[in-house]
């Protein structure tokens, strides 16, 4: 399977704080992969580097065969990377329909735009809320709306920063099903997540970040059994 994302020697420091310390990372196309690690491990910073919100001090990012290290954020999005933030990044004063229109209108027009919006409303269980201001949706609904918006740019790679933060168990399970659905449509998914049950639900492979470096990488079973990961992040049964 080809790599859709390849990161080599990625380094970024803010003064004396190193948030990425020579990260080498690759992601196979069509997979669902989770990034875990303790707070301050550099997970969100890694996402910001991938998105072009931070310029790296060293290293390269290759996406879908092209070096995107020097591209601006919106140019990376146009190449096929999309993101859902931890805090819902929606347009709260606009209706649900308007949120989806802004997300999809660049690729779709007229009837196909309307049909896709209806499909997304069903996908997110938001049918009937088209005219509702997005800001008064429940937290889980806002998260789903943002996932649907992130799909609007027709991504090859979807980055999800704690997609289930603040969700109930039912909402978390449904979010996992949504991500499996998106993955089955060919979208590669890379998610930062703390909820290990959710990680087990969606990811076959997991990478652990610690102090801005890759600490461990493997299948979910390998990571759970990894003594070092247990020590720095997961904890042990007798702890």
């Amino acid at each position: 399977m080809t790599d859709i994302l390849k990161v080599q020697g990625l380094r970024k420091a803010f003064g004396g704080v190193v948030v990425a310390n020579g990260i080498d990372f690759s992601l196979s196309a069509g997979t669902m992969h989770c990034l875990i690690g303790p707070n301050g491990a550099g997970k969100s910073s890694f996402f910001r580097l991938l998105l072009g919100e931070h310029a790296p001090d060293a290293g390269t990012i290759t996406f879908d065969g092209s070096d995107i290290t020097g591209l601006r954020s919106f140019q990376r999005i146009r190449r096929g990377i999309s993101v859902k933030f931890q805090v819902p990044g929606i347009f709260k004063a606009l209706s649900v329909r308007q949120n989806l229109e802004v997300a999809f209108q660049d690729h779709l027009h007229g009837q196909s735009l309307g049909a896709t919006i209806r499909e997304m409303l069903d996908f997110t269980d938001l049918r009937g809320n088209e005219t509702t201001p997005a800001g008064i949706l429940s937290h889980g609904q806002q998260q789903w709306l943002e996932i649907a918006m992130a799909v609007g740019v027709e991504p090859k790679l979807l980055l999800l920063d704690e997609p289930t933060a603040g969700m109930s168990p039912d909402e978390t399970r449904k979010t996992g099903e949504m991500l499996h659905d998106l993955n089955s449509r060919g979208i590669t998914i890379l998610a930062v997540e703390h909820d290990m049950a959710f990680v087990e639900q969606i990811a076959r492979r997991v990478t652990v970040l610690h102090f801005g470096s890759i600490f461990a990488s493997g299948t979910i079973a390998e990571i759970i059994d990894h003594p070092g990961v247990q020590e720095i992040y997961l904890g042990t049964a007798d702890a």
């Binding site: 919106f74 999005i77 146009r78 933030f85 990044g89 929606i90 347009f91 802004v102 660049d106 740019v153």
Partner: peptide
């Protein structure tokens, strides 16, 4: 639509691929 979205959340608009 994009102008209004920029007023509401320019960061998100950029992350939808628009040059804000």
């Amino acid at each position: 639509n994009v102008l209004v979205a920029i007023r509401e959340n320019p960061h998100r608009v950029g992350m939808l691929g628009y040059d804000v």
